[in-house]
Design a protein around this nucleic acid. Structure first.
Lengths: 301, 301
DNA sequence: ACAGTGCATAAGTTTTTCTTAGGCAGCGTA
DNA sequence: TACGCTGCCTAAGAAAAACTTATGCACTGT
């Protein structure tokens, strides 16, 4: 394989007929072009150009190499610039932590997309921290903003947890329906294993203490591996989850989950939107941020 | 245009499915491949591979880039390797100084070529010194061997100059035909402007002194810009040239030029064949050298 | 449990690329 | 004819890229 940068310099010089023009095109000095072409000629063992004092003319060997190189380089350029172009069109790269992706981000992205049919996005579900520059991320829904001190932060609502269950559960438990949390059996409690990414790890014990109810109820019940699983199980009517209100908004609006109490416990951080300040003006970004931060944003479900 | 070396590394990794295999193919470490691919991904803003612990799988974007890059790079490789291959086949690059090219080298190359129909050569006519490595020269017919101390030297005959004219001239000058140089009018002498590349610059004056004839005859006549022009003019019957015997061999053999005297003056250097020792075994080279050094080598004219 | 494998990255070294400067040889113009 | 301008060539030094080794990580196979 020939030296590819030298070949590129040669192609530019052959096409333009001038080292100086090739240098301008490639953003280097004409001396650099000259050295590249010499290197290519050494590799090939043939002169690519006839030098007529301060003019160059392609030799037969130069023509042969130029024809092939021009096509090959053009193909490479097209296929890679196409990808670069695709990503710079009105499409956004949205990255979210897993806990917020399915129940919060996807519905809102979907509803925004329906309001702007030409809008396209890449959605990536990945843990904190992420590398904005490397992965070309436009917007990140994060839980811990301290990972991104150099970017713009737009806080979302400060999430809390509260007791949630399904109507079906209530129908099967009239005492709970009529008298609230005080009547929930300990065995019906859904406990959440908060992962290390959460700033706090609220437990049923915490909640009962705050509610001034007997904490002894809080040692029994189900164990869910994460917050999302807890909500899913609650939605199935199995029991009562100390669930994230933000994740449950749509289910609550649709009547699939109901809150058994208004007493909530804060999670340590707010979810927030993070974006590089330089991308402020990118198409759809500001609109999407606004869409996400409206309290009354309709979701699609 | 993407970073081409990174693209090449990516193509090898994609094709082989492994950084380690790509590294072996390219003769670098797997860390180098990894860094190249990261650079490409940063440029394109997309991951090319999905990393599955210690395995890699192309993403959709990776497939799109790979398809184009593979074709482009293959084209480039083929067209350049073809040239490299062409030059390594049984063809020789023969370089000669101008004074010896037309009347000595070309006839002998032609006759050798006729005896070996598959033989092909590049003949370059250029002054001393030449760059063997850079221009991939196999054989050089040089005048001054001191330019090439590191190469093998095969001396050709030690050239001399002597009085030459055409039969037509003699027919028009019976006195010269019958009594030789003593009867040549000064006005019929062809003087040669020897260029700086000749080690000596013999004049008619020198010749007459050596011949013990009156030197006063040697200030008149024609002026030829170089040795070849002088021979051409002599061949046209204009006058008598102090011409190079070596260059005149074929004309003499054909009867187009005749020597008016056996008295000669040495030129400072011999013509010689020069070749890089490493190329000794290259096909046709030894045969051609032998062909050139045979005293009785037939020429084609 | 442990050895082996392959990718990722840091840090330092080596190589390549690039720069500026000066040379050369022609061309066009006064 | 003299001179300014142009573009290619190359040397030498600076900057950038490429490469190395070493180490870490997470898996696989025994």
């Amino acid at each position: 394989m020939p030296p590819l940068n030298a070949l590129r310099a040669f192609e530019a010089a052959a096409r333009t007929g001038s080292y100086v023009a090739a240098a301008e095109e490639m953003g280097v000095s004409s001396a650099a072009i000259s050295q590249h072409i010499r290197k290519l000629e050494d590799y090939l063992g043939k002169q690519m150009f006839l030098r007529l004092n301060n003019r160059i003319v392609l030799t037969d060997a130069g023509h042969a190499i130029f024809d092939g190189a021009a096509v090959g380089l053009q193909l490479i350029s097209e296929v890679t610039e196409q990808l670069v172009l695709d990503r710079s069109r009105s499409r956004l790269v949205v990255s979210a932590i897993e806990s917020v992706a399915e129940r919060w981000v996807i519905p809102r992205l979907t509803s925004y997309s329906r309001s702007c049919p030409e809008f396209r996005f890449d959605l990536r579900v990945e843990p904190d921290p992420v590398d904005f520059a490397r992965h070309n991320i436009d917007l990140r829904i994060a839980y811990n903003p301290t990972h991104y001190p150099e970017h713009a932060i737009v806080p979302l609502e400060h999430d809390v947890v509260l007791p949630l269950c399904s109507p079906e559960y209530l129908e099967r438990n009239p005492a709970v329906r009529d008298h609230g949390m005080a009547m929930v059996p300990g065995d019906d409690l859904l406990h959440t294993s908060w992962g290390p990414s959460f700033a706090s790890h609220p437990t049923w014990h915490d909640w009962f203490v705050k509610a001034k109810l007997s904490p002894h109820l809080a040692t029994k019940g189900f164990q869910a591996s994460n917050s999302r699983v807890a909500l899913d199980l609650a939605g199935q009517g199995i029991g009562v989850a100390l669930g994230q209100r933000m994740m449950a908004l749509d289910d609550m609006a649709a009547g699939r989950l109901v809150a058994l109490s208004d007493i909530t416990i804060d999670l340590g951080h707010s979810y927030c939107l993070v974006y590089p300040r330089a991308k402020k003006r990118k198409r759809h970004l500001a609109e999407l941020i606004d869409w996400f931060t409206r309290a009354d944003t309709p979701s699609d479900s």
